Simulated assay, not measured.
Amino acid sequence: MTSAADRRHAGHHPRRPLRVAPAWVGAAGTDHRADVLPVREAVWIWSVRRFARNALWALPVAAVAYGWTTFGDVSRPEQFYAVLAAAWLSLVAMVAIAALLAGTRTRRPAVAGLLLGFLGTIMLLPLMALPPDTALAGGTVPADRIGPLGVTAAMVAGSGWLLLGWAVLRSKLLNPADGILLMIAAVSVGAGTFAVDPLPTVGALLLLAAGMGLAWTGGRLIPSA
């Protein structure tokens, strides 16, 4: 038999939802095995993947900005602002690709490509802001070494994109064709402004195609939150 208190409780709240706040996500059990994940970790992973999916759209926008700079003089103010926008968006896209591949077997080349991309961009942007035949402050780098140093910085950035393209190709998570396009576009990125036209423009188009493919495929990996 049920008590009067139990009957009153059941009668007053017949449709009240039951709220469950589990401490672990994974297989049921009392022991904390390797396949059991804390809820806070699951939420953090979900947030990182959602950021990565959204940030992948920075890559096609960066490709458009980079392509626009190939049609004019970089020394003009609006062209230089486009270069800055393309560089910043490219770094955001690199972080997104590395974050999306963090749980795959190609996470190491993805992280290596991210670090090389940051290094090349940090080296290249200050050199592009220097007027022609100008040495760095303090005489650390002579004026005749600025050009080779810029080529080296562009090659380092291109190597970062090459590793990221290889990571996409071998990850079995994203479309392998986008990885191939990214690797081909890395050649023009590595050539930078020193390449012969129309190689930079073709590279920007390839980067745009790879960015659209990655953003579309990455957005369909998991349901929208």
Rank of each mutant, 00 (worst) to 15 (best):
A65L: 14
V39D: 10
D144Y: 10
A135G: 11
G117M: 14
L37A: 06
S75W: 11
D144G: 01
W46K: 13
M212K: 00
I45N: 13
F118A: 15
S224G: 00
V83C: 11
G67I: 05
R33T: 15
G26E: 03
W166M: 02
P77C: 06
P109A: 06
W161Q: 09
L136C: 04
D133K: 14
L181T: 06
I97Q: 08
R16C: 00
P22N: 05
P142A: 03
W216T: 09
R49N: 09
R19N: 02
A10V: 00
A153F: 04
R49Q: 12
H12M: 03
V92C: 13
N54D: 03
Y81G: 10
T104I: 05
L214R: 10
G150S: 08
W88E: 12
M94I: 06
I146N: 02
N175K: 03
V187Y: 15
G26A: 04
A34T: 13
K172A: 07
R49F: 03
P198E: 05
W166I: 02
V168P: 08
D144F: 05
Y81M: 13
F194S: 14
V92W: 12
A204N: 04
R105L: 04
V187N: 05
D6T: 05
V141F: 09
S90R: 14
P198K: 10
P77T: 09
T70W: 08
R220T: 01
R145S: 04
A42K: 11
A34K: 11
T134G: 02
D31H: 14
V156F: 02
V156S: 01
S75T: 14
T2R: 10
P200L: 05
A215H: 03
A21W: 11
V111T: 14
A137P: 07
R108K: 13
R170T: 04
R108S: 07
